[in-house]
Design a protein around this nucleic acid. Structure first.
Lengths: 210, 210
DNA sequence: GGACGGGTTGACTGACCAGTCAATCCGAGA
DNA sequence: TCTCGGATTGACTGGTCAGTCAACCCGTCC
């Protein structure tokens, strides 16, 4: 209580309305979907006037863009960092799957919005952020590629394809949880990490062709 | 020219406007996306008056629903039929991947609409048709399940998961083609069928854990 | 205490478009 | 030839929002 004059940088009572709007948007988008969600829903959820959303963001789209970029950049950093560690490829993939699934566990709404409204969406967003999304594929493909080079992965499939299949499996699982098609809970989350890696790395066949 | 009184059942000059509207909708939806596409775009594309769309369909949504159901039911029948044949599971999966990829090759616009606007969409449609979509997963899971029972597939992964991963890989590949993220052409189509099955069935690892 | 200006407010406007509907067309049957 | 009814037409309506903007609030600095 005793004086807070220049100790605080510049954040008053309500820690930053911009952040509040962003957080409210996650809830609003996750609840009603981006299209069905009106800007006034975001403002209401954030307890802020309608116009303030436009003080901090140029448009409704920019709110979603911001949400996506914030999170996706973290993902890219994490993948790069995992790749930097000295680990078997299989474990790197497990770490990536873990990170994504843990992200969902911690903030399902945010992941729901990113997956449903951007990653899986055709609307402007999917296209706008295609390059960013592809960066993730490329990083994963790189992991596979190196593992093929050092002999831990077979070369029957191209790295790009393997990356697609790996990410595809993760996305399907998340989608299942998001749409309540798949049971979800602590044990399912852990199980999923293993299954995804086991399917992509281990394969289904008992016997393999020579 | 010589009389066509009761030879034809009831299809005049323009083989059925309903079909024309449906076909035009595929083009319109594929080009502009379902949301950005106005009903007048469909009517224009079909060379038909605006109001006629509402003569044959209750709403714009119903047009998309019809398109999706028509095609998805074919898919379900085909999967069931493939499953009925006496083939190794791996070949059944190959046949399914083939069918879907061939569908895309024959009518990319239609598949684009189905994948982008229904299968991958959160909007009403994804939810409305969830059950139908899940039927496909279930049929695939069934194939895996039987293969596990007869010993050709490992039991390390549940059938439901395997189905998710398999379908996920296909969807990612199609999405890549749709968004021009992946090169496409005759050779890529064939290659994709093999790679998808090879990844899911063969796995990436050179060595497997005991 | 006055002026400045960024933060904040919410009523309002302009555009857009799904869906309606009254009118017209046209083929079949009487 | 006339009538009936389904097919076809396209102007129009109603509702919905995204985004604008003029005004207000309030802390800061002179």
């Amino acid at each position: 209580m005793a004086s807070s004059r220049n100790v605080e940088p510049a954040k008053p009572v309500q820690l930053d309305k911009r952040r509040m709007i962003l957080d409210a948007a996650v809830v609003a988008f996750a609840t009603r979907g981006f299209h069905a969600c009106r800007v006034s829903d975001i403002a209401d959820e954030a307890n802020v006037a309608y116009g303030l959303v436009y003080h901090y963001f140029r448009s409704k789209d920019e709110v979603l863009d911001t949400l996506f970029l914030e999170r996706w950049n973290v993902l890219l950093e994490v993948i790069a960092e995992i790749d930097g560690q000295r680990l078997p490829a299989r474990e790197k993939l497990h770490a990536i799957a873990s990170f994504i699934i843990e992200s969902y566990r911690r903030d399902p709404d945010l992941m729901k919005v990113i997956i449903v409204e951007v990653t899986r969406a055709a609307n402007s967003f999917g296209r706008t952020h295609l390059a960013k999304i592809r960066e993730a594929y490329a990083l994963i493909a790189d992991i596979v590629s190196k593992a093929q080079a050092d002999g831990t992965f077979r070369t029957a499939v191209t790295p790009a394809f393997a990356a697609l299949a790996f990410y595809g499996a993760i996305e399907q699982v998340l989608t299942g949880w998001i749409f309540d098609t798949l049971p979800q809970g602590e044990s399912e989350f852990d199980e999923a990490k293993t299954f995804i890696v086991e399917t992509i790395c281990g394969g289904l066949d008992v016997a393999r062709a020579a």
